[in-house]
């Protein structure tokens, strides 16, 4: 543990966080990618990915978390998720109408199947995860500034 990371919680919490935060992130990606063959999907996966960064921020303080994921990147991902969802919907015009499932369906019960549904899951998860993490950042930073004034 280096010297400049003195903010945050105690050493026990930091060690446990360092061991588990990667697993939480990986579990979020698993829930997200398998959304069309098993329970889960974009909403739950996005919130789990946001929770992994929230976990990191609560344990280590805001400097380390901003080094991993700056605020501009969070806002970029949120807008990118919304635009990607709209873009997939607009691409349906190439073969018919809005939101048509224009990629081939594939074989059921396989990971690469179901056309645009996995792509939409990825877009939704980017949108939800980045949006909720931006909300959390805004509320936490407001609290920090109110404490600083006193």
């Amino acid at each position: 543990m280096s010297k400049e990371h003195e903010s945050g919680m105690s050493v026990i919490v930091k060690t446990i966080t360092r061991l588990t935060v990667g697993l939480i992130f990986l579990f979020g990606i698993y829930i997200l990618v398998h959304g069309h063959v098993s329970p889960g999907g974009g909403f739950a996966g996005g919130v789990i990915i946001a929770l992994s960064f929230v976990h990191l921020m609560l344990a280590y303080g805001k400097e380390v978390s901003f080094k991993k994921l700056p605020r501009a990147v969070v806002h970029f991902f949120e807008s990118f998720g919304a635009l990607m969802f709209l873009g997939i919907a607009l691409l349906g015009f190439t073969s018919g109408y809005f939101f048509i499932n224009f990629i081939s369906k594939g074989q059921p019960f396989k990971l690469f199947s179901a056309g645009i549904i996995p792509l939409c899951n990825i877009a939704i998860s980017l949108k939800v995860g980045a949006g909720l993490f931006a909300i959390f950042l805004a509320l936490v930073l407001l609290k920090f500034e109110a404490e600083k004034r006193k």
């Binding site: 959304g35 069309h36 063959v37 098993s38 329970p39 999907g41 974009g42 919907a89 939101f99 499932n101 369906k105 594939g106 059921p108 019960f109 199947s113 179901a114 056309g115 645009i116 549904i117 939409c120 899951n121 939704i124």
Partner: peptide, 16 residues
């Protein structure tokens, strides 16, 4: 739709 999770196929295909 090709998706075996019916909830996912409803929220992302039928009622997108």
């Amino acid at each position: 739709t090709g998706a075996t999770n019916i909830v996912a196929s409803i929220i992302l295909d039928y009622r997108a």
